[in-house]
C-alpha cells in the first residue's frame, strides 16, 4: 500500500518543500526556486494519476489497436511544464530588473510599495 502511494507521497513532499522554501527564504531567486518545486510536485502528482496497472503506453507504432491508455494527464503535464517555463522565465527576469534597480533581491528590501 505504501509502495503504491509512494509517488503521491513524493509529490506531496515536493510541494511541501517548495512552499516551505517560499515562506522561509527571503531571497527572491530562492523563493522562485521554491515555486518551481511546487510546480514539480504538481506535475509528479498529475503523472502519477495517469498510471494504470497493466496499461499500454499510447505509442501508435507498437501498441495494439483500441487498448491504449488515454494520455490525458501526460498532455496536461506537458502543458504545465511549458507554462512553468514561461512563468519562471518571466519571474527571473523580473528579479533581474529589480536587482539592477534596487541593488538587492531580498524580499524584505523589495518593499517600496506598501501601506
Amino acid at each position: 500500500m505504501v509502495l503504491y502511494n509512494l509517488p503521491f507521497i513524493a509529490a506531496g513532499l515536493l510541494m511541501a518543500f517548495g512552499i516551505a522554501a517560499m515562506l522561509l527564504r527571503r531571497n527572491l531567486i530562492k523563493m522562485i526556486m521554491g515555486l518551481s518545486l511546487v510546480e514539480a510536485g504538481v506535475n509528479l502528482l498529475l503523472v502519477s494519476l495517469g498510471y494504470r496497472a497493466g496499461g499500454i503506453a499510447p505509442i501508435f507504432t507498437n501498441a495494439p489497436r483500441d487498448l491504449m491508455v488515454m494520455p490525458t494527464v501526460q498532455a496536461m503535464t506537458l502543458t504545465n511544464i511549458v507554462i512553468g517555463i514561461a512563468t519562471t522565465a518571466l519571474l527571473l527576469s523580473f528579479v533581474m530588473v529589480i536587482y539592477r534597480r534596487y541593488g538587492s533581491a531580498e524580499a524584505d528590501v523589495v518593499r517600496r510599495l506598501r501601506g
Binding site: M22, L28, M31, I32, L35, T87, L90, L91, F94, V95, V97, I98, R101, Y102, V110, R111, R112, L113
Partner: peptide, 10 residues
C-alpha cells in the same frame, strides 16, 4: 512597477 509585477506573478 516590476516589484508590483513580481508580487502579482508569484
Amino acid at each position: 512597477a516590476v516589484e508590483a509585477g513580481l508580487k502579482y506573478a508569484v
